[in-house]
Simulated scan of single mutants.
Amino acid sequence: MKTLIATDLDRTMIYSKAALKAAPSTADLRCVELAKHKPVSFMTVAAADLLAEVSAQTPLIPTTTRTIAQFKRIHLPGEPWRYAITSNGGNILVDGTPDPEWLGAVIDATRAAGASLAEVAAELQSRISDEWVDKFRIADDLFCYLVVQLDRLPPSFLTEWGTWCADHGWAASQQGRKIYSMPSTVCKSRAVAEVRKRLIAEGRLDASATVVAAGDGALDAEMLMAADAGIRPRHGELEALNWQYPTVALTDRSGVDAGEEIVRWFADRA
């Protein structure tokens, strides 16, 4: 194989009911995630069918900031996956099982690079209030995030918190109602590079294989820049920032229709 595909999931491949409302589509939809037996995430039928075809021909790596448990709720066309990346690159799943060696290396690198998760969590909790924070969560013992009320979020919070994080080897990023606090060592691009190396060693990928990637959020930017070619939808955090890069294309459409456009872009390159 001469191409490796790495794709973000939420608001890139799959779309929640809230995301569907933000950019309505007339396309037929397929549910690809259930939570408590209720449908929560969708793709267009055309995108789902084509993604199954593409992933049967070309190594495709689901690459998400979701925790392992959250990722396992998704039934993305093309599964089961030899490799999947969760926790923003902090975990690599091999045939559905977390690789302890990779996780250990990430944790060691985080300790060496700056503040510990415990220190960051304590500092963050000292800065937030129940008046505008609905949830505080630790994700897979690697990073933390908030779910906030956007209309009550203090205007200076993200800038001030981002500055503190940058001074301590971390970064802050907002995606919708979620504000992530992420170690600089936990990133999707490093995990994608590791999976590429393993696939080459297994003989499933040519040594000269190119990487193509898709994503919509600031946490995807490094992965998009590291890829030989990338694409992002006309919505999400990167769109709001007007983020551009010479090798990263933009979709014509937004919402779930952009997800279908991205799969077609993958198919052209596979």
Rank of each mutant, 00 (worst) to 15 (best):
M1T: 13
K2C: 12
R11A: 12
R11Q: 14
A18Y: 10
A23E: 12
S25I: 01
C31F: 12
C31P: 07
K36G: 14
H37Q: 15
V40N: 14
A46I: 06
A48H: 11
A48M: 09
D49M: 11
E53W: 03
A56K: 11
Q57C: 10
P59E: 06
P62E: 00
A69I: 13
Q70H: 13
K72S: 15
H75T: 14
P77G: 07
G78Q: 05
P80Y: 02
Y83V: 04
N88D: 10
I92N: 00
V94W: 10
G96A: 10
G96Q: 05
T97H: 15
P98E: 10
W102F: 10
D108I: 11
A109N: 04
A112N: 13
G114Q: 06
G114S: 06
S116F: 02
E119C: 03
E123I: 11
L124W: 02
Q125D: 15
I128D: 03
D130C: 13
D134V: 15
A139Y: 09
A139S: 15
D140M: 12
D141T: 03
Q149K: 15
L153I: 09
L153E: 09
P155R: 14
F157R: 04
W161G: 08
W161K: 10
W164I: 03
G169I: 05
W170H: 02
A172P: 02
G176Y: 01
G176H: 04
Y180K: 00
S181N: 13
V186C: 05
S189N: 11
A193L: 12
E194Y: 10
R196D: 08
R198T: 08
L199W: 00
S208N: 15
V212Q: 07
A213F: 05
L219I: 03
M223I: 10
L224Y: 01
A227E: 12
A227W: 08
D228S: 07
P233L: 02
R234M: 11
G236K: 00
L238N: 01
L238R: 00
A240C: 12
L241H: 14
W243F: 06
P246H: 08
S254I: 05
S254Q: 04
V256L: 06
I262E: 03
A267S: 11
D268Q: 15
